[in-house]
Nucleic acid binder design. Structure first.
Lengths: 195, 195
DNA sequence: CACCCTCCGTAACAAGCGTTACGGTAACAT
DNA sequence: ATGTTACCGTAACGCTTGTTACGGAGGGTG
């Protein structure tokens, strides 16, 4: 018989295949056949697991969010101070190694795909707002005496900066090496009074 | 007879149609037929003007860069001080109105399309490096006594922040209204000592 | 052994894609 | 008026796409 765990594991593997195709071949080549090939199966399995292509993309998008959330929560729990937690969480949002670079490319691909898909853009907004709230909480914990306005503006500046440098570094890794991104982040934290 | 200006104007109109389709329908629907429909002509004209779809995209991508460069140079020339020039140039890079929001979506679409296209990614890198040099020059002019390292880090932070907030605001305009972006920019400039 | 049910690979389908070839139209030259 | 040339709309081609339907393989159950 087929345990639900098996089906879930297959869905996860297919979602990972979606990420791979998106990172290596781009959104235009993100076809059901390409995903099946990347997962080492046929299109039959894919279409038996998901009702259609969109459902596959939606699942992969949500799994991407859940995965990064788990990773971020682990970083947050392991940090020794509020400022260390803030820096660790921001750091993983940049593209400082092949792994995070891949995630940034995949993130960009989903964002581009969301332009014409109401459900995808809805997921992006939910996830991004949660992400923003998390960072506002981290900034508030790192600067307990700040007014709410300042917390919001600084959190927004830090979110935008890391998101932006991740995209830039993903598109041109040679021009945006890891140490420059880290020094940029530290310079911003110091400038905001969070160093 | 057909002056070269006519052909150039047609190429420009088709490129604008590419932007429209990219902004309103997304990369996946960016077909030759959709571009022709947006331009009010048939696929025949498109394929007589450009050898193939890729050439059309490359032309539209380069024209996007040239257009923004012209706009930025006008802003820079009209500024009354180095700091005003820096702020004006950074400001237009965000998504603070429907026009700049559209440009941000188009920019994202081209970036996503560049993942699988060596020539598109090459254009992106050339243009982005020129953009970065421009901002380093503006930051250096606004803070004449800074060491080169600091100029580079601050310029990078500002570029990444505006690029990032443009993407976020394009994907979720309600959550990132124009005044929040502006206040975020001002807060960052003040924090960096460029207010 | 026979039966059945689940799973999934294979093959086909219509639709949409980029691209090509043809044919008509309008303007200019003679 | 007639021939020539440039321009571009129309229609078709082959290919790839998402999706569907069929059929076989494998393991429980009587």
């Amino acid at each position: 018989m087929s345990l639900p765990a098996d089906r879930a594991a297959q869905g996860e593997a297919l979602s990972r295949a979606v990420w791979d195709v998106l990172a290596q071949q781009g959104l235009e080549k993100l076809t059901v056949r390409a995903v099946a090939a990347a997962a080492g199966c046929t299109t039959g399995l894919v279409m038996h697991r998901f009702p259609n292509r969109r459902a596959l993309l939606l699942h992969a998008r949500q799994l991407l969010h859940d995965t990064t959330r788990q990773r971020v929560e682990a970083l947050e729990a392991a940090a020794t101070s509020p400022r260390a937690a803030l820096r660790a969480v921001l750091r993983q949002g940049m593209a400082t190694d092949p792994e995070t670079t891949n995630w940034s490319i995949v993130w960009l691909g989903f964002l581009a795909a969301a332009v014409a898909d109401a459900e995808l853009i809805g997921m992006h907004r939910r996830n991004n707002r949660a992400w923003r709230q998390r960072l506002e909480r981290l900034v508030a914990a790192a600067a307990t005496d700040w007014p709410v306005d300042q917390v919001g503006m600084v959190a927004l500046g830090l979110i935008a900066m890391t998101e932006g440098v991740a995209a830039l570094a993903a598109a041109d890794p040679a021009a945006y090496p890891a140490d420059q991104q880290e020094r940029m982040l530290d310079a911003a934290l110091v400038a905001y009074g969070l160093g």
